[in-house]
């Protein structure tokens, strides 16, 4: 760690935050600061899987997020789980903004694992809603 003041020590400290905060899902982001609200727009094309408080599972490309875990998803679809014969149904949603309050989990989707999944063969009840 750098000891001196100024930019260099700032860089050092920022590295610590970068390495140790869970919100830091993506590396290359553009910051837009407006009315003290920060939204981080990601240039990455990371696919994420969001589980909402009402038990829904939405999969899409992470386009942005902020400190309240509000999330912007592009090319998103919902995976509807059921125990019926047809297995998991996929509903196209497109561009979605999900309010952080309603988010339980944000998972990084492992593309290889996901392409090996046969969703039509998966049978499960939908997740229970979160009861606060």
């Amino acid at each position: 760690m750098s000891t001196g003041p100024g930019l260099e020590s700032l860089v050092d400290r920022m590295d610590v935050y970068c390495a140790s905060y869970p919100l830091d899902l993506c590396f290359s982001c553009v910051v837009i600061m407006e009315n003290f609200v920060l939204i981080l727009f990601c240039l990455s094309t990371e696919t994420i899987s969001v589980i909402t408080n009402d038990g829904r599972n939405i999969v899409g490309v992470l386009k942005g997020f902020d400190q309240a875990t509000n999330i912007i998803l592009d090319e998103s679809h919902e995976r509807v789980y059921s125990t019926r014969v047809e297995g998991v149904q996929q509903l196209v949603l497109g561009l979605y903004i999900i309010r952080g309050d309603n988010i339980s989990i944000v998972g990084e989707l492992d593309e290889e694992l996901d392409s090996n999944l046969d969703l039509s063969k998966l049978r499960a009840h939908p997740l229970k809603p979160v009861i606060h």
Partner: peptide, 29 residues
Amino acid sequence: IKLEHTRVVDQDKYPHMLSVRNCFIRGSV
């Protein structure tokens, strides 16, 4: 909380995160 190398404890009952290995969990849940 952010977890790495994750697996759901009862995967047969909850296959919803089979292709997720890293995840962010909101503190409030």
